[in-house]
Design a protein around this nucleic acid. Structure first.
Lengths: 156, 156
DNA sequence: GAGGAGGGTTGGATTTTCAAACTCACGGAG
DNA sequence: CTCCGTGAGTTTGAAAATCCAACCCTCCTC
């Protein structure tokens, strides 16, 4: 058994440490939509300006957003996603789809995203190796750190 | 233009209102791994017990987890994912994959998930209609609520 | 030179978080 | 029977984050 007292080492936790604070993913949503200006973000997200300011700094520091001047004199800025930020968009879309079904109940959806193929985007998470959709019962986790278990030493 | 002052209506925001608080997705991770007992959750997540207690209540209320007694006398409980909870697992896996690449830099990964096909699970988000991988540049957003724009009235 | 707009910062009240200690119910060892 | 340990939380009090409104500064237009 591992020296515990430390939480499980995990990239999900690592990712959430960067983008898991309140509003961070909504900032990314807006920025991916092209609404990267401070006042747009405040309005569209509904976040306090100071918190937003802090999140933007953090996301820029983490390499998920960049801050660009779209005008000198008067100095005006715009936040845009980096490649890393853009690569989070599938996570956002997958979360949206879950929310559409499980919270909105599939009706009265407030936003539609169209794929270039001409249809509404309904994301499907697949296995890159075999191409099949990912289902819980097809997965087996292997924690790499010593002492970490999947079902715990006391599991049923 | 819409009567603004309200944030953008959006299923991503709705979803995050339920699973976006600190530790909530880590609870789901553990529960999906089969570690659904209170003390396991405390240890594996590293969350304060009171916060965890509050998150568990919320996730159960939201229909993402269920609380089951695995023993009467002494009463002992276990949290398990509902169908809605299980359907969030692809989001978790996609986030893990992003973290693997962008935070861990693709090396020294603390956890591996194996797909039933025999290979390591590397999730790929695809369009359900055409099957192609989802990329930012292939997407067009259509907000349904009146007055909401994609690029904003003042966009470049 | 008055009034915006954009992009923030500051101040103070309210909430959350945190860590450790505590509770309660039971089961087993001595 | 008494003491110890386990599981599942609750309580407590200090530290940190959030919220909101107000303010600031620079430029631009009227």
């Amino acid at each position: 058994m591992a020296a515990n007292g430390d939480p499980r080492p995990c990239s999900i936790a690592d990712a959430l440490a960067v983008v898991g604070e309140k509003y961070s993913l909504l900032v990314l949503r807006e920025v991916c939509l092209g609404n990267g200006r401070f006042d747009q973000l405040v309005r569209n997200i509904g976040a306090p300006r100071d918190v937003l300011s802090s999140r933007l700094r953090r996301l820029v520091d983490a390499g998920i957003l960049t801050k660009r001047a779209y005008s000198e004199r008067p100095q005006r800025f715009e936040y845009r996603p980096t490649q890393a930020g853009l690569e989070l968009e599938p996570v956002l879309m997958t979360l949206k789809e879950w929310g559409d079904r499980h919270i909105r109940g599939g009706v009265n959806l407030p936003m539609m995203v169209e794929h270039i193929c001409g249809h509404e985007l309904v994301p499907l998470v697949t296995c890159r190796s075999c191409g099949k959709p990912v289902h819980h019962e097809d997965l087996t986790a292997h924690p790499q750190a010593e002492g970490w278990t999947v079902t715990g030493p006391t599991a049923a």
